[in-house]
Amino acid sequence: MHRKHQDVVFALVGIVALMVAVLTFLTLFVNMAVDGLPRLDWHFFTSFPSRRATQAGILSAWVGSTLVMLVTAFFAVPLGVASGIYLEEYARKSWVTDLIEINITNLAGVPSIVYGLLALGLFVYQFGLGQSILSAGLTLALLILPVVIVATREAIRSIPQVIREGSYALGATRWQTVRYHILPYSSAGILTGIIIGMARAIGETAPIITIGALTFIAFLPPAPLKAEPPFVSFDWLMSPFTVMPIQMFNWTSRPEAAFQDNAAAAGFVLVFMTLAMNGLAIWLRYRLRRNIKW
């Protein structure tokens, strides 16, 4: 009966392999929590980086990350959703459509550091945007564009054809169908994709280092709101900046253990944020799958 034993043995091997992956992740998380949690207090979030490890904080890093994410979302969301809508609802079968589709698949496989080189050559020097929040936001927007497009397409594709036919039968145009039926019904799926894309963008280090972001920033970008008219200011877009993963990189590469504890604390915040975002996306998808009955 030793053929049957094979099944049991493989099931065990499978569980061991799963455990290797999951336990490594747990070790990583616990290890970082043990080293980093003692450093996590109010002071850590409200202080600039410093030459003294115990006084250093992540204020400029989290503000920088937030602003870069705003720019990224501002460009990636409309462009990605519009591309997805075009490819699913408008595009006819032609070589241009084929080209766009193959291209999106390929872009998803381009290493992130190559986007950094693109941004360095194009945004920083050719367009003269410099090593600014705007350059970084645009870079990450291009990076997550395939994620948003693919999610949008999948969400739209799951809407049954009868919905469209019903809308057309009532005399709606194509855009009216998209605007009042396709977009509302696919919004949760699209949102899932956007969250996953943003979670990826927030942890990206290599492309932002490549455009030449500074690693030591002890000031904040100009505030977006002002007391005197016109009350809003976009000076912050052109400001030098740093982001959470770069701050963590900077602290990790220092030899002093005290700075490495700071790195652990920053890493803990970073992992917590990406996990929370991914968790939210997974939960959204789960609810979506349960609730939809066409």
Binding site: V22, L28, R200, T205, P245, L270, T274, G279, I282
Partner: peptide, 22 residues
């Protein structure tokens, strides 16, 4: 499956820290 998915979502700098210091 969701746990594995999250494993792929961890920022690589965090993995770098883990490799170097653990």
């Amino acid at each position: 499956k969701p746990v594995l998915e999250m494993l792929g979502g961890v920022p690589t700098i965090v993995y770098g820290y883990f490799a170097l210091l653990f």
